[in-house]
Design a binder for these strands. Structure first.
Length: 909
RNA sequence: GCGCGGGUGGCGAAAUGGUAGACGCGCUAGUUUCAGGAGCUAGUGGGGUAAAACCUGUGUGAGUUCGACUCUCAUCCCGCGCACCA
């Protein structure tokens, strides 16, 4: 019987499901390993061949760990709340739940065909009330907590209330607190709660009708849909992520993530250490605080700049400048975020008419307003040092403000000197100091004189947590006398009400305003819902204990599974999900609900798989198509052609004619009797006719081939184009592998003793597979299988003692064929429960000098050498021996290069 | 501007400082099969040769080294991230 992947794959997929082969159970007697994929958002388009790349890698790793004896948790679920389903609902009137359920079913059937070892009993869906009960619970816990900077962790809000009542906290005295009304108390507590309501500038997207978080906006456009976003002041629910900035930053050091991803998070958190200084400004001598990282340049300050949104603008504008300032503010306000970004090179600004006093020099300097100063960062006001800051420089040049260099010998006639190097001059007590020293000296000076203080700023903002949307978790909050009040825990989950239409209500309120009786005990419930990242922030915890109705995760389950050992997913979540999850987890850790403060110990980012589009070239004005190699002789238009009509860049002419009516009578100019298509690497999308569906690959080649091929394509972390033409290679390998066992219906497997050569081939593979899988180098592992097959094929080896371990080795990559062969070899239990073959190094040691070998690290040989060594050629006997490097005379051999028969080179130390 | 990755055959790619291009695709030749497809054998960086020999070759230039795709410096290009962040 030939390798019949179709029946094999179906058979074992059902068998695994029936036998619950991959069900994970807590078992304290066994070592655990938790392998997690970033769960997908089930979109209407279904999976293309790029989506499963990471899933295949994690599945291989899971199965590998299981063979190594670990108790593996490998779950899957769906991130099923979110904008696209709701946009679709608005357009079609279909309930998002309906489309979401349908999309999930499609995803599931696509995933099932690939033969993943998921424990589907642990599936979670973020839109399931039994799941989002715990999202709402976590929100209430955050609402019920404050960040205690002394303990450096979140604590119950009642502890803060107790302090406010007795000793006061911050600028709130006990007298003020105790005299405050309920409403005032609520407002005050919002200043400290982890989940709080507050007014800030938000990213408002009119087309989507909702606010968005910073990571949901890119280049002034919404990430979902690409609609323009504008800044707007609104009162919103927010999460105090900024309180965790330092811990989120410090925690990175302990994580086994790639440097680039850590760097992205560091950039996003944006720590900057500097100084805050007070300048007395205007007639009223208003103290204005500025933030700077370069106090050393204080003698070079020639003006100040306020952000247009700064609260001080009004007070510092003198009557004579009022009209000009108003005009400028109107101009700024009119601009969308996108225009602002596009025009960053244009320098704009206006003079307030006021002057401030440099606290160190006493000098009077003009105060300007400009949009290059951001209200949201630092204090929204800066001291400008045009000589040593390029933005200040551009501004000074434009408005003819003085530029005073304060570093010896620098030339500021053409551009500013931003580097932190050189010796200070024109700077009073700082003169002669190196810049780096001067920064510290100036900081000390300013603090000692009481002019300012050291201050650390972060770019990381609190997360805006409300969305004016329907398809998300409702906030478990109602407004009692206008005071935001937590719903009692026993009322959770607060389920989404049915509504008839998904558009915002006529009065501009969120869609939930359309719900009948959206109240609790007669009080109105919150009408916005939570954002997409809410449900994905703790899903990895829920997998540990998905059916628990009393807790997000039980203590036992949490203490057993602890945290994710390996997390695989795309890099697009670097500054969104991966920040929020870490924040969320740290919060739960602070409050004692989980035992690890970091959720994902190791993280791998799989690359994207791009499409490979094919083109035909139509000669302009005709219905004649010219082959790619000849197109230069004609004037042509490039037309995307469906890649299913193309094989190895050769066009299926009949298929092409049948594809579209207008091509039915197409003519072709061929080269060597064939039409060669052009190609390009582009994103996979329907409009480019380059989408490859994994189902189709499973139909023609089988899931095992798909799995092997996706791994073989190249390094996991690298982005690469999908090119179906290489797939035959791995498919051939599987067919060859099958033929080691069967020739037609004849079983070839014999019981003989393996030879040393055969054992060598096997153990080379075992060693390579262990090494490569641990290093996530799956493409070279697949190569190693092929090499082993070549070697064993040349040896005509059909011995059980070799083939049986081969089946185990291959099973993480190609589980179906291996399961089939495993059972045919007489086993009754799954190959997934076998043990990984033990590696014996001595089998792989070379016993002839066929290859170059070295003595450094892995020792393969010792060499008998004469005591006197001649660089140009040494006669020596080389003996195979797996021992460590020996001495030659009193010198250590560091390396010896050997080619057949002679020593090429010797290195001594 | 700052930061992080990368540049190796026609293509995807391998190479602890030690025979560069493993493995696969594609291509070429041979062979097998009624055929479709597939299988098997050999070859395949470039130049050179009847075949060898030989010369050359990992973006570019320098350096360290007996020896560099690999390490260091400079430079050019590509990808990604962050960015009027003071």
């Amino acid at each position: 019987m030939e390798y019949d992947f179709k029946s094999i794959e179906q058979k074992w997929q059902s068998w695994w499901a029936e036998n619950k082969t991959f069900q994970a159970k807590e078992d304290p007697s066994r070592k655990k390993f938790y392998v997690l994929d970033m769960f997908p958002y089930p979109s209407g388009a279904g999976l293309h061949v790029g989506h499963p790349l990471g899933y295949i890698a994690s599945d291989i790793f899971s199965r590998y760990k299981r063979l190594q004896g670990y108790n593996v948790l490998h779950p899957m679920g769906y991130d099923s709340f979110g904008l696209p389903a709701e946009q679709y609902a608005i357009q079609t009137g279909q309930h998002p739940e309906v489309t979401t359920t349908r999309n999930i079913a499609r995803y599931r059937s696509q995933l099932d065909r690939i033969g993943f070892s998921y424990d589907w009993d642990r599936e979670v869906r973020t839109c399931d009330p039994a799941y989002y009960k715990w999202t709402q619970w976590a929100f209430l816990e955050m609402f019920d907590s404050w960040y205690d900077p002394d303990a450096d962790k979140a604590r119950p809000i009642r502890e803060l209330v107790a302090r406010l009542e007795t000793t006061g906290y911050g600028d709130v005295t006990p007298e003020r607190w105790n005299a405050a009304s309920e409403k005032e108390k609520s407002d005050l507590l919002m200043r400290w709660r982890i989940a709080y309501q507050g007014e800030t500038a938000v990213n408002w997207c009119p087309q989507l009708g909702t606010v968005l978080a910073n990571d949901e906006v890119k280049d002034g456009l919404s990430v979902r849909g690409g609609y323009p976003v504008e800044q707007k002041k609104m009162t919103q629910w927010q999460l105090r992520v900024s309180a965790y900035a330092e811990r989120l930053l410090a925690g990175l050091d302990k994580l086994d993530w790639t440097d680039s991803l850590k760097e992205m998070q560091r950039n996003w958190i944006g720590k900057s250490e500097g100084t805050e200084l007070e300048f007395l400004c205007g007639e009223q001598q208003l103290p204005v605080t500025v933030f700077t990282t370069r106090v050393d340049t204080i003698y070079g300050v020639t003006f100040m700049v306020l952000a247009p949104e700064s609260a001080l603008v009004d007070a510092l504008t003198v009557p004579a400048q009022r009209a000009a300032v108003d005009e400028y503010l109107t101009y700024v306000k009119k601009k969308t975020e996108r225009e602002r970004i596009a025009e960053t090179k244009t320098v704009t600004g206006v003079f307030t008419g006021s002057y401030g006093t440099n606290p160190v020099t006493g000098e009077k300097i003009p105060i300007w307003i400009s949009e290059y100063v951001l209200a949201g960062y630092g204090t929204g006001a800066i001291m400008a040092v045009p000589a040593h800051d390029s933005r200040d420089y551009a501004f000074a040049k434009k408005f003819n403000l003085p530029i005073v260099p304060i570093i010896e010998g620098c030339d500021v006639s053409e551009e500013s000197f931003d580097a932190k190097e050189g010796k200070m001059c024109n700077s009073g007590f700082l003169n002669g100091l190196e810049v780096k020293v001067a920064i510290e000296t100036a900081k000390d000076y300013v603090e000692a004189k009481g002019l300012g203080r050291r201050k650390t700023n972060y770019r990381l903002r609190d997360a805006i947590f409300s969305r004016q949307r329907y398809w998300g978790e409702p906030f478990p909050v109602y407004y009692k006398d206008g005071i935001p009040t937590a719903l009692p825990l026993e009322k959770l989950p607060l389920t989404l009400p049915e509504i008839s239409e998904f558009k915002p209500a006529e009065n501009g309120e969120p869609p939930l305003a359309r719900a009948k009786d959206w109240t609790y005990e007669g009080w109105p419930l919150e009408k916005s819902t939570m954002p997409g990242f809410a449900g994905s922030s703790a899903y990895y915890l829920r997998y540990m204990d998905p059916h628990n109705d009393n807790a997000l995760v039980s203590r036992e389950a949490d203490e057993y599974w602890r945290s994710v050992d390996l997390y695989i997913g795309g890099t697009e979540h670097a500054t969104g999900h991966l920040i929020y999850s870490r924040f969320w987890n740290k919060f739960l850790f602070d409050r004692g609900y989980v035992c690890e403060d970091e959720p994902f110990r190791k993280l791998i980012n799989q690359g994207m798989i791009q499409g490979r589009s094919s083109f035909v070239y139509r000669v302009v004005g005709t219905n004649t198509f010219v082959s790619a190699g000849l197109k230069d002789g004609y004037q042509t238009t490039e037309i995307h052609v469906d890649i299913s009509l193309v094989r190895n860049d050769r066009l299926d002419l009949a298929g092409f004619k049948a594809w579209r009516p207008e091509f039915a009578d197409a003519d072709f100019i061929l080269e060597d009797g064939e039409y060669i298509c052009g190609w390009a690497v582009e994103k996979m999308s329907k409009s480019m006719y380059n989408v490859v569906n994994p189902d189709d690959i499973c139909d023609t080649y089988g899931a095992d081939t798909l799995r092997l091929y996706e791994m073989f394509l190249g390094p996991l972390e690298q982005s690469k184009p999908w090119d179906t033409k290489g797939i035959d290679g791995v498919h051939r390998f599987l067919k060859r592998f099958w033929r080691f066992f069967y020739d037609g219906d004849t079983c070839l497997v014999s019981d003989g003793e393996p030879t040393r050569e055969e054992l060598k081939a096997l153990h080379k593979l075992i060693g390579k597979e262990q090494e490569d899988i641990e290093a996530f180098s799956f493409n070279t592992t697949v190569s190693a299988f092929m090499i082993a097959a070549n070697e064993l094929g040349a040896l005509k080896c059909n011995k059980r003692a070799i083939l049986e371990p081969m089946v185990i080795l291959l099973s993480p990559f190609a589980p179906h064929i291996c399961e089939e062969l495993w059972h045919r070899l007489g086993h009754e239990t799954s190959v997934a429960d076998a043990s990984f073959p033990e590696y014996v190094e001595s089998y792989t040691v070379e016993d002839s000098c066929t290859y170059a070998v070295s003595f450094n690290g892995k020792t393969r040989f010792t060499v008998d050498l004469p005591k006197s060594l001649d660089k140009d050629g040494v006669e020596a006997a080389v003996r195979p021996l797996d021992q460590t490097a020996k001495y030659v005379g009193d010198q250590t051999i560091v390396k010896v290069i050997v080619v057949p028969g002679k020593i090429v080179n010797i290195v001594l130390k």
